[in-house]
């Protein structure tokens, strides 16, 4: 099953002489259970691609499909994003006055899920990534790696099966960074879908497929079929 599909997507920022062509004719499909890494230097269009895939931005031309639904026809994009897409960024944005589990619960409470159930779901996903013992800690009582793991748990709590990660290993050392990828990989093997933007080859190498972006275009791809990638 295809989770995200970009079809001949162009994204132009600005107009006229100052227009910046951030993406040019990009087509990409990401299937369920697949981990796809997008690599490229800064300014190559990586973050634009991620924002379009998650409905945070709209293409200038071309189309973006999420679970076969054309995002151009979706009225409540915010609602769809909240229900189906999780995000993890480099600058993690945990709320410092909430504990780990309260941070993870938050999107579910916004979904209208009742407190007890939201808490159960949050504990379940924290347990899946081996962080159950840290549930009661505040962000500043966790290591950088653990905070990023909490952010991943929050992105995947409840029904969300698509995770968009923009440099999630940011300032982490290689051991903590590897642990983040081990968790993302594990979530994919359990059925989630991850689109990962990174400029670090060692983390991209955890992916089933690595796509190289250059000047807004896909320059190359390792194109390993899903079956042989395991």
């Amino acid at each position: 099953m295809t989770v995200v599909r970009l079809a001949e997507v162009d994204r132009v920022h600005g107009e006229g002489a100052s227009a910046v062509h951030a993406l040019k004719g990009v087509s990409l499909e990401v299937g369920a259970g697949e981990l796809v890494a997008v690599m490229g230097p800064s300014g190559s269009g990586k973050s634009t691609l991620l924002n379009l895939a998650g409905g945070l931005d709209r293409p200038t031309s071309g189309a973006v499909f999420l679970y076969d639904e054309d995002l151009a026809g979706v009225r409540d994009l915010a609602g769809l994003r909240r229900r189906q897409v999780g995000y993890v960024f480099q600058d993690l944005n945990l709320i410092t006055s909430l504990t780990a589990v309260e941070n993870v619960m938050l999107p579910r409470e916004l979904d209208g899920v009742r407190f007890r159930r939201a808490r159960q779901e949050a504990m379940a996903v924290l347990g899946e990534i081996g962080l159950a013992d840290m549930a009661g800690r505040f962000p500043d009582e966790l290591s950088g790696g653990q905070r990023q793991q909490v952010a991943i748990a929050r992105a995947l709590v409840g029904e969300r099966r698509l995770l968009l990660a923009d440099e999630p290993t940011g300032a982490l050392d290689t051991r903590a960074g590897d642990e983040i990828l081990r968790i993302l990989r594990g979530r994919c093997d359990a059925g989630a879908t991850v689109l990962l933007v990174t400029h670090e080859p060692r983390y991209a190498a955890w992916a089933d497929r690595v796509v190289f972006l250059r000047d807004g275009e896909i320059a190359d791809s390792t194109d390993v079929p899903l079956a042989s990638a395991r």
């Binding site: 080859p201 060692r202 190498a205 955890w206 992916a207 190289f212 390792t222």
Partner: peptide, 20 residues
């Protein structure tokens, strides 16, 4: 460069799988 980069990435993916 492009060909080599993709080949090296494939090797890196294999090494990562071996490590897992």
């Amino acid at each position: 460069i492009r060909r080599q980069r993709t080949a090296t990435m494939r090797a890196l993916q294999q090494l990562t799988r071996a490590k897992r």
